[in-house]
């Protein structure tokens, strides 16, 4: 598998650029020194609470917002060095599915117009007839009857709208899709439908994909690898099996423990994190998680733990994570 996307030291700081009088708001470090690779046909899940920078990361990868530091290489080309025209052409290769099934479809356009929009933009529809045929095919692919194409979004339920959004994203046959919490606004029963649909489509079309979620349970079925983010940084990353069976970061463990289980017998014994995520404009010193961490010790407020390898392909940023013994480390890594 070749590398499709190579993220190198990516960071984004939002600064207050308004011309108001008075004190400016402090800059917000939404994403900080994030590095990873996504291979062709691979699904990477990014999980974290709201405000952890996961949506910003998704938008940085698509160059919907510009990075303050680091770079994103797409098929070995540096996106930050591209012209606006080149970026727009690249959008044919990378698409996005949005969280809000209601807001992300324009209310005054028909389903056909919405789905065909990316194709129209890149001149992929030859005639009216061709366009309708392609839209019909896409609707069928996402499990909606083609006769829906002349209706407007308000007639559809959340799950159906999300299917329309997915049809729009895959219409230009992209190599990479960012799905920003595509199921968190849906009923649990509908979540399963959408997750299965995205999995099927990935198998059929072979795109890579970044799946953003706040819930580790949702991601389990989609992801090949999982990255857990906290306050703009990746705190743990590994393959699905590694993350779910042997989490090394206390935050990952807390996230798993917080997911409600449909089993009344398993009620007790959960780790309940105290308080909220601190403001990203005022990140705690040392380890950013220490204010809520059940393991926090003195060193945590002084020194920020680096991402260390705890087993091959599995990294965690915690002072208490045991580093993978050097002796056992394979020469390749």
């Amino acid at each position: 598998m070749s590398v499709l996307i190579d993220v190198q030291g990516l960071g984004k700081t939002f600064t207050d650029t308004t011309m108001r009088l008075g004190p400016k708001r402090p800059p917000v470090r939404a994403v900080e020194s994030v590095s990873f690779q996504i291979h062709q046909g691979e699904a990477l899940a990014v999980v974290g609470e709201s405000g952890c920078g996961k949506s910003t990361l998704g938008r940085l990868l698509l160059h919907l917002i510009e990075a303050s530091e680091g770079r994103v290489m797409f098929e070995n080309r540096d996106m930050s060095a591209m012209s606006r025209h080149e970026i727009r052409q690249l959008r044919q290769r990378m698409q996005m599915v949005f969280q809000d099934p209601f807001g992300s479809l324009s209310p005054r356009r028909t389903v056909a117009d919405i789905i065909a929009e990316p194709m129209d933009s890149f001149g992929l529809t030859k005639s009216r007839k061709d366009r309708r045929e392609k839209v019909a095919e896409l609707l069928d692919l996402v499990g909606l009857p083609p006769s829906y194409m002349d209706r407007r979004p308000r007639q559809f339920s959340g799950g159906q709208r999300q299917r329309i959004g997915i049809a729009r994203a895959i219409s230009v046959d992209p190599a990479f899709i960012v799905a920003d919490e595509p199921v968190s606004a849906l009923d649990v029963s509908i979540q399963a439908q959408i997750i299965n649909l995205m999995q099927d489509l990935q198998e059929k079309r072979g795109f890579s994909f970044l799946f953003i979620a706040h819930d580790l349970a949702v991601v389990r079925h989609v992801a090949d690898r999982v990255a857990v983010m906290y306050l703009g940084r990746i705190v743990e990353m590994g393959t699905k099996a590694q993350i779910y069976s042997s989490p090394h970061h206390p935050y990952t463990e807390a996230l798993m423990s917080a997911a409600p289980r449909p089993d009344p017998a398993a009620r007790s014994n959960r780790i309940i994190l105290e308080g909220d995520v601190p403001s990203p404009s005022n990140v705690p010193s040392g380890c950013p998680f220490r204010t809520r961490c059940p393991l926090a010790a003195e060193i945590c407020s002084v020194e920020r733990p680096p991402l260390i390898e705890v087993e091959p392909g599995h990294t965690a940023a915690c002072h208490f994570a045991t580093p993978y013994p050097i002796a056992q480390r394979s020469p390749a890594t």
Binding site: R91, M96, S104, L105, S106, R109, P118, S121, A169, V172
Partner: peptide, 26 residues
């Protein structure tokens, strides 16, 4: 600020087209 405008940008729609198709009618 509407998500569907961001969706259009992400889909690769050109700026003039976004303005005439998504902004002006709304």
């Amino acid at each position: 600020q509407e998500p569907y405008v961001e969706a259009a940008v992400a889909a690769g729609v050109s700026t003039p087209r976004i303005i005439f198709r998504h902004i002006v009618p709304n």
